[in-house]
Design a protein around this nucleic acid. Structure first.
Lengths: 168, 168
DNA sequence: CCTCAGCTGAGACTTAGTCTCAATATCAAC
DNA sequence: GTTGATATTGAGACTAAGTCTCAGCTGAGG
């Protein structure tokens, strides 16, 4: 998996610049994140590592995710739930998310016109934007065909409910 | 405060339709929410009630907020932190938020063109939207003049940090 | 003013995440 | 290849925000 090696190097460069080290655990996490996961939760990642008998503690998972976010290799996103999700970043393509409240599917989109309009709004309010976060919740095409009904805004289904959780 | 009475009635109508009751605690919470708060946290509300020596338990605060959200009188919003904020709703004006990461100010905006563009994106992806959530984080005008620097996306200051918390 | 379904409070519990600190690993220098 | 300063790790205690339980209380229709 040569692509993953590239990400590992990018991470190491970032770490060295801060006087930090690339450890076995950090390498394993980057490898895992970039080779299999796309949107994931911290706990899910911890579980995957445990499955592969790579013993990495919860603390290390969270600490490494923080570093990855700082380095720009991983992005932290809200997907309509009350905890964070993460996604790996290849290249620099910013995007936002459509989240299906029936099946948990996440559809990405990138719309320059929408971004532009946001900048105009900020300019009008004399606000200097640094970052934004947009999720549109609703029902995806295939769930719509199955006759799924929208959830009410306060009761949003868990994304990736299938994923097993570590802590009993 | 006659306006608050109108909200209390709306809430009672909603409750009666579900075979539920308007209690002393629920009335007090609606009164508090609609007379003083705008964006607030559950714990903050709990604290305010305690200050006024209205003994309302944490459980009741959370339960009532859930009912208020279901009734449409209150909206649950993410403002870039890892827990929810709430805001009361008068009329039905949907809006999104600009959140200053330096001072915590929250600026609302409503931009029909932006909303329209979102609908177009959904249509293109055959996605049926029910709800969306947009926050733009950045630096507001007055903080900008004071030379405040933007926070990095993963490290966002607490909104309403000044507010005292209940649990030690 | 009775009755009973719905509501409340106290506090145990849960979930997601952070912190502490002794033991361990990394890596630059030798 | 060894050394040593320093960063990192793991185990588990801790925290924040929120949920749940259940015995006792209360609103409101009759």
């Amino acid at each position: 998996m040569p692509t993953v090696d590239r990400e590992i190097h990018r991470f190491q460069d970032f770490l060295i610049r801060q006087g930090q080290k690339l450890t076995r655990q950090r390498t394993a996490l980057v490898r895992e994140i970039f080779s299999t996961h796309y949107h994931f939760e911290a706990d899910e990642l911890l579980f995957k590592m445990k499955q592969k008998s790579l013993k990495i503690s919860r603390a290390t998972v969270y600490r490494t995710l923080e570093l990855l976010v700082k380095s720009g290799l991983v992005r932290r996103v809200h997907l309509g739930e009350d905890h964070y999700h993460y996604e790996h970043v290849r290249g620099d393509s910013h995007h936002d998310h459509l989240v299906c409240t029936a099946c948990g599917a996440v559809i990405e989109f990138n719309d320059p016109e929408l971004e532009q309009r946001q900048l105009e709004i900020c300019a009008r309010k004399k606000f200097t934007p640094t970052f934004h976060n947009l999720q549109i919740l609703g029902i995806c095409d295939s769930c719509h065909r199955k006759g799924e009904q929208p959830a009410s805004p306060d009761r949003v289904m868990t994304i990736g409910e299938g994923a097993m959780r570590l802590r009993k």
